[in-house]
Design a protein around this nucleic acid. Sequence first.
DNA 1: CATGGATTATGACTTATATCAAATTGTTTC
DNA 2: GAAACAATTTGATATAAGTCATAATCCATG
Lengths: 241, 241
Amino acid sequence: MKEDNILNQLKVVCSLCSLRELCLPIGFGPQELEQLDALAGSKKLVKRGEYLYRTGSPFSAIYAIRGGFFKTSVLHEDGREHVTGFHMMGDIMGLDAIGSGAHVCDAVALETSEICEIPFDRLSELSMCMPVLQQNLHRIMSREIAFDHEIMLMLGKMRAEERLAAFLLNLSQRFSARGYSAASFQLRMTREEIGSYLGLKLETVSRTFSKFQDEGLIAVQKKFIELKDANALKRLLGSLA
Amino acid sequence: MKEDNILNQLKVVCSLCSLRELCLPIGFGPQELEQLDALAGSKKLVKRGEYLYRTGSPFSAIYAIRGGFFKTSVLHEDGREHVTGFHMMGDIMGLDAIGSGAHVCDAVALETSEICEIPFDRLSELSMCMPVLQQNLHRIMSREIAFDHEIMLMLGKMRAEERLAAFLLNLSQRFSARGYSAASFQLRMTREEIGSYLGLKLETVSRTFSKFQDEGLIAVQKKFIELKDANALKRLLGSLA
DNA sequence: CATGGATTATGACTTATATCAAATTGTTTC
DNA sequence: GAAACAATTTGATATAAGTCATAATCCATG
């Protein structure tokens, strides 16, 4: 029972590893495993459509996704909403709230999901005596910054086709890294949410999907996507003026 | 001399405080001040046009700007460049490189600038025994993530006029927070760089400046900007459909 | 399992911004 | 201080994506 508990905590810490790295308990000794108990991340189920947190709600924990799918979005005073990200198993959410002490975006489950709540003060405390944990936290935050810069490039410089190609390839790569097929997957978000993320209107997303299908790059059946020619998508990304 | 050295280190740590918080040595005792010596950030002068670091160069330190002005930009394989940020006194650069071990953007001085190099391994080490330092580092990274999400909203959802208004108001607020005038300032970047940052072409930036001037919102004389009606700019941001 | 609301696809048309071009002004540099 | 180059402004035109509208399809709930 105790063992099992420690193992659960380990999984939590594992999700604090980078996306691409394997989640092995390297660097943790028996006494450190003991300390991991302090993290005591409680598991929570968030049903489809429910909010994990909302803009303005007080920040106390970050969240590791054990399974399921989320979107995060910021909203402008005039009501406009912009989807800032889609998040899946192993991703950490809520890091953008550390600085202000309150959440600065909404997090909604796009399908019923299981998350692990990690109280941030305990994580901070523990990371003081666990260099590996601290390092992972820094890496995760740093990578989020770097990734956001990529998205800024996409939003600022790319055409609709390029954005959608980048989006599909990114999803494919992330599913693949989690052991799912890189070539076909189920979208969990609507065309409107994709559009919001990519800075496009839903009609443009729909039209571009159709165009890709006509050109034999992908097969679309509503939410089910099959990448028929991933290389062509990659070429589209690199070369298109 | 020794005293002076410690004071210098303090300033470095101070720049690790949040943008809006005052940089007082609260929370640091005498022995902690001693430890700050370990940070030994070496000062460097970067002349206008010079690179502080380039994409791909190995990551070993983060940089606190003591004075001057920088832009950071990511470049796409096909040569397209996107400016991801403008940075001034007190800002920290290079945090996006922690995760990958190599820099993921270029940092160029837009005017001759003085920076303080903070070796990241030493900072990590020191933050293990200085909770305040660790906290500040987390806050800075978190705020960068939150700010990037605001920019994503801007790039994804706003019209040219709103983008430029948001840009001018942000600059104004940051100059103001550093003790400079909020109402008038010198731009250190070209119209093209502003455009790259905002996802617009330089012609659109120029035209929008002219429009704002015609409407009495600002006065433009090449690089010198005067905000004549900041409230109108703010209104433009919130309401414009 | 039928009904109503949400989502998606597609067409016709509009518009904001990009593109191309030329003149003007500012800034290095020899 | 003049020549050469870089940056800015402004106009005319092109175009990618937005808007509006309609039909088809999906799917959630009583």
